[in-house]
Amino acid sequence: GDARRRMVEEQIAGRGLRDEAVLAALRAVPRHSFVPAGMEGEAYLDGPLPIGFGQTISQPYMVALMTALLGVDARSRVLEVGAGSGYQTAVLAELVAQVWAVERVAELAETARRRLRELGYDNVHLAVGDGSLGWEEHAPYDGILVAAAAEDVPAALFDQLVVGGRLVMPLGVPHRDQVLTVYRRGREGFDVERHTPCRFVPLVSGDVKGAEDVAENETSGLAASGAPAGAARTKAVKICISGRVQGVYYRASTQREARRLGVAGYAKNLRDGSVEVWAQGDAAAVDALVAWCHGGPPRAEVERLEVEDVGPDPGMDTFEVR
């Protein structure tokens, strides 16, 4: 539709990503099919969205960028860690021969599996499991895409990559600044390229979450409807954004994004040319706003983003521009 076309042209091609195969894949996948019920009208906006259980569907530009950095083609076999709602999975399925995807939250995995099947993606294999272990049975892979952050790449993932293959993953301290990093496996080691600042939910290892675990832990995220699930965990952060961020509608765009996510706080210009953002609310929603701030509106050029955990302000119940 028109919204999908505008998303690709303005948010992705407009930021300089020119990989025609990737752009075609983003045009083909109906992103609105992979967001919670009631949020379809927000599916093509320039930012991540909460999908429940403390997880998010990534910003369209970040999905496109990670896919392009993977460097895959129609013959490739790809492993995806952290399938979430299945949107990134579908984009990969448009481009490659086979996708093996792992998701540790059983209910998200089942919903993604159903959506992908309904849309006709018969080259996707999705399992519930610990993504940090990969999927050894079908290794090696030409590309591995990890849609969750950790301080280091799990050794099992390196072991499952072919020589000449690439692994794309955000590295850094969870809930703080991270860097999208690309590893290319050579015959004698790995070449590493640190690409761009980003913000992802943490990669969790250990026991997977079945339906029972999810029900017990619903307060840590957002319900499938996108509404707060019980007394959801709250957090507050102060963000300092540097670069070309004044005079490009950064504050107004941040306000619009924050209100969409249900986050309270403010955005204000500082004398040194940066923008300060205070954000508080549900932890997953705050993380989604921080992820959006890494890119900002289309005319912004973010060079640095610093995030500081702070105590919530009980008197702050809306988001304003100062």
Rank of each mutant, 00 (worst) to 15 (best):
Q98Y: 09
V99F: 05
V99K: 02
V99N: 08
V99W: 01
W100N: 06
W100K: 09
W100I: 12
A101N: 03
A101P: 08
V102K: 05
V102L: 11
E103W: 00
R104P: 02
R104M: 15
V105W: 01
A106H: 05
A106K: 05
A106W: 02
A106N: 04
A106M: 08
E107K: 05
E107S: 13
L108V: 03
L108M: 02
A109E: 10
A109M: 13
A109W: 06
A109S: 06
E110Y: 10
T111G: 04
T111D: 14
A112M: 11
A112F: 08
A112E: 10
A112R: 09
R113L: 01
R113H: 08
R114I: 13
R114F: 05
R114M: 12
R114S: 15
R115N: 03
R115S: 10
R115L: 07
L116F: 11
L116I: 03
L116S: 00
L116K: 01
R117P: 04
R117N: 11
R117E: 15
R117F: 14
R117W: 13
R117A: 15
E118I: 06
E118A: 15
E118Q: 12
L119H: 02
L119P: 06
L119R: 08
G120H: 05
G120L: 07
Y121P: 08
Y121M: 04
Y121D: 08
D122H: 13
D122Q: 14
D122A: 13
N123T: 12
N123A: 08
V124M: 05
V124I: 10
V124C: 04
H125K: 15
H125D: 13
L126K: 00
L126I: 03
A127K: 14
A127T: 14
